[in-house]
Nucleic acid binder design. Sequence first.
DNA 1: CGACCGATTGACT
DNA 2: GTCAATCGGTCGG
Length: 184
Amino acid sequence: MAADLLGCVLVRRAGRTLLAGRIVEVEAYLGTRDPASHAFRGRTRRNEVMFREGGHLYVYFTYGMHYCANVVTEEEGVGHAVLLRALEPVQGTVAMHRRRSAFHPRVEERHLTDGPARLCQAMDIGRAENGADLCGTTIFIAPRPAEDPRPTIGRTTRIGISSGTAHRWRFFIKGNSWVSRRPA
DNA sequence: CGACCGATTGACT
DNA sequence: GTCAATCGGTCGG
């Protein structure tokens, strides 16, 4: 399930720099039975990756300027994915800050990776990463480090959607300061 | 083809 | 708290 990703570490190899962040906030989007999901109306060119076998990265472009990244989770043809909403920087924070600064002046440290589009900027995830194989070596997800405590998980409705608002499919690590914000 | 709008963000009152 | 930015996807005519 989506909450199982909490505490895992997203690793990104960009050239010589290694970027990594602990996943602290996610949302589940459940395909054709979820009106908030891009997959609700079936498979199209845009959402095609969502319907692939689990283990692929679905990256979409929105609001004319932002990218957001999802982990595809089910078997071929299903269309479920988990949106990565916030990371806690673990490795490569200087490079993350540099990438964020290239887009906006005066990036505060606390806003490095605390949002779905912000983390894509920081982790250098864009159109080229749509469909990436997470079993590869350039972007992948490592299990929760053994020395990390099992996270205490909070749960709310999802953020920024106008349908499917009743479902509490947003999950986050309670007390973690990198969680993006509270739902409306 | 035109209109509408979005799984967001940063700037500003 | 409010609001504009900015453009591809989707849908109606």
